[in-house]
Design a protein around this nucleic acid. Structure first.
Lengths: 139, 139
DNA sequence: TGTTGACTTAGACACTGTCTAATGTAGGGT
DNA sequence: ACCCTACATTAGACAGTGTCTAAGTCAACA
C-alpha cells in the first residue's frame, strides 16, 4: 500500500493532505471500517478533514479498484483495502466481525449455464455467515 | 403462501387487515421488493396502512423465517418470499434486476476448515453479479 | 358483548450517503 | 520563486432508509 500514492499520482491524482490521510488509515489495520469510522480516524490525524471528502475519496478509490466495497448487512458499507488477492468474507452474526477467507474451487463455475438466464457473469460475492469462536463460546 | 396466515395464527399472531395486506403483496409476484415498494402496494389495497407497520411486519416475517432479507447493494433491503427452496441471487449491475438461481454443489463445503478460524458456520449468501441479457445487449 | 393487551398510527428522530456553492490549493507554466 | 487555474475541499443542507414513541384502536378470548 505504500506505493498506492505513487500509483494514484500516475493516474493524475493530486496528492492532497486529505487523500494521504485516508490512504494512511486504510493502510493501518486490516479491518473493514465503515466510511464514518474511517472519517473518525482521519480526523484524529487531520482535524479539519470533512465527511464529504472521505466519502469522495473512498468512492474514487473504489472506482480505481484500489479498495473494495463490502455491504454485508444492509447498514453502512465497509471498505476493504485488500484487493491484492481474491477473497471472500466470513461474518460473525453476533458481533459483526469480518475475516477475509479464501474458498477453494471456482465459485462462478458453480452456477450452471442453465441457471444463468442469459446473464453475463462478472463476479461472485460470497458471505459466509456464522458465529466466531468467542461468540459461540458465550452462547 | 396461502396458508401463511394460518401458520402465523398458530404462532400467536393477531390477524389484522394490515398483516393480511402485507402477506398478499408478498404473495402476489415473485419479485424482490424493497420495504417502501411493499408499502406503496399495500397502500393501494388499504390506504391507511402506515410505513411503520409495513417495516414491523416485514421484520417479524423475517424473524419467523417466512421471508428472506436480501441486501445486495447497500441501499434498501429487499424481501424475498421464496423460502421454500434454498437458492441464491443473480443481480444485474445495470438495472438491478434480481433472479433466484440454484447453484450446484455444497457451497459451505467450499470453505476448507483451515479457513474457518473457529467460526461455527450457519449459512452462505452468494450473489452472482453480472449484466442481464437486455442490459448486455444495450452496452 | 366487554375487556385487555397486542397492534397500528403519525410523526419525530437517527444513520448513511449525496449534492451545492463558496473557498482553498497542488502542480504546471513562466 | 511566484502566479494561475483547474481540481479538491469544506460546511451544511438535503434525500433515502429505517427505528422509535406515545396515543389511540381493535382482534381474540372469556
Amino acid at each position: 500500500m505504500s506505493d498506492l500514492l505513487a500509483r494514484l499520482r500516475e493516474r493524475g491524482w493530486r496528492l492532497t493532505a486529505q487523500r494521504r490521510v485516508v490512504a494512511q488509515v486504510l493502510d493501518g489495520e486490516h479491518v473493514h471500517y465503515t466510511a464514518d469510522e474511517i472519517h473518525a480516524r482521519a480526523v484524529a490525524l487531520l482535524p479539519e478533514i470533512s465527511r464529504a471528502t472521505v466519502y469522495n475519496t473512498l468512492g474514487e478509490l473504489v472506482s480505481l479498484g484500489e479498495v473494495l466495497e463490502v455491504s454485508t448487512d444492509g447498514r453502512a458499507k465497509r471498505y476493504d483495502p485488500n484487493t491484492h488477492d481474491a477473497h471472500q468474507h466470513l461474518v460473525c452474526e453476533s458481533c459483526g466481525a469480518i475475516r477475509d477467507v479464501h474458498p477453494s474451487g471456482d465459485l462462478i463455475a458453480g452456477l450452471p449455464s442453465s441457471e444463468r438466464f442469459g446473464f453475463t457473469l462478472l463476479g461472485v460475492d460470497v458471505t459466509y455467515r456464522g458465529l466466531c469462536a468467542d461468540c459461540a463460546g458465550r452462547a
